[in-house]
Nucleic acid binder design. Sequence first.
DNA 1: TATTAAAGTAAGTGCTTACTTACATAAAGG
DNA 2: CCTTTATGTAAGTAAGCACTTACTTTAATA
Lengths: 200, 200
Amino acid sequence: MANKDRKERTKERILLTALQLFSEKGYLGTTTKEISAKAGVAEVTLFRYFVTKEQLFEEVLKRFSFLQKIKEILPQVEGLPPEEALFLIAQAFLERLRERKPLILILHSELNLYPEKVKDILKGVILSIRGEFIQYLQTLRKRGFLKEEVDLPVCAQAFLGMIFSYFYLKDIKGLSLEDELSEELTLRSFVKIFLEGVKA
Amino acid sequence: MANKDRKERTKERILLTALQLFSEKGYLGTTTKEISAKAGVAEVTLFRYFVTKEQLFEEVLKRFSFLQKIKEILPQVEGLPPEEALFLIAQAFLERLRERKPLILILHSELNLYPEKVKDILKGVILSIRGEFIQYLQTLRKRGFLKEEVDLPVCAQAFLGMIFSYFYLKDIKGLSLEDELSEELTLRSFVKIFLEGVKA
DNA sequence: TATTAAAGTAAGTGCTTACTTACATAAAGG
DNA sequence: CCTTTATGTAAGTAAGCACTTACTTTAATA
């Protein structure tokens, strides 16, 4: 094992552990001792790489907010009937939110620390996802599927908002209301409502 | 001024200040010194009323999660055409979320502390709001306005979800996307999409 | 094998924080 | 007016935390 690999791997281990702990307990609720213990390194090693806890936090944000590539599902979906396509998009969106859950949790509870940085990241994530979705809506519009007068960004907000709220309650807050349908049925209902709401 | 009033007023002042600071800086980010200073009392007074910081936090939750009465807008709305009624409901819902913003911020960032208690409160808030909305949907159904097959709880989730996400981005995260419509237009668009999506 | 780089051990420093104790003052009530 | 009750002042304690320093061990490299 080359020495450089070794360095990178320990650094990576610390970053990963920090991501996890920050997302579970918040920035203030997590101690450097805890991070280093769980990462299996000496506390001093942590400080050798990231001079302060704050810098570690910053690097966690950097490392995990941009690297996760957004998978493109649009191409696979363009030929399908809109109802099916929207369902698949909804599923993919949910999946994507779930993958990013630790980061989302951090952005969620750590508005006080680095408010601008956190906001920028969030904005980037939202704009990219919404952008993709608007792209799909445009193909629908070209095919004459949509009402003329609808505003695409607002439509996207509406549809993604339904799904985000669902994610928020279920995955972030861990709430399940007794009378809930299965996930698939819920998403399909959302799709139906949305589609009827915007189609020509 | 009676002595009892005096006691209650200082206690209330501490609770209010704590609510505000906890919601701004989180539980761990707020110190008892800070709370007492801002409330204009000696730190020791805080501890005389609430033996520990944790107990103060608990009382903040108790005090502000149940007292805020949910205003009834349904009666004022029943006669109106559905599109107008839904718009007013959407506005009222947003307003209600905004009133409760400090509490929501706390429930938001303090999942670690008292997870069960926090969850219960959140669940109560959500169920009560959703319950009211379902009530309204039932009147629409009775009047034959809705598709037969739609599931009311899911509809409610969809509609309130759009609005909640809007609130989340705008009021909680302070994000505004450049291409956004005015609040009124956005809400009216949501209403249109939803109504077309569920009507017979 | 000798050298160098990466990581560990261990002890400690200074600061902040929740919480305490003992005593003092001011207002309310009888 | 005198007692009781609410609040303040001031000083302090014990613990936890981020971060440091000095030295040692382990492992890659030349």
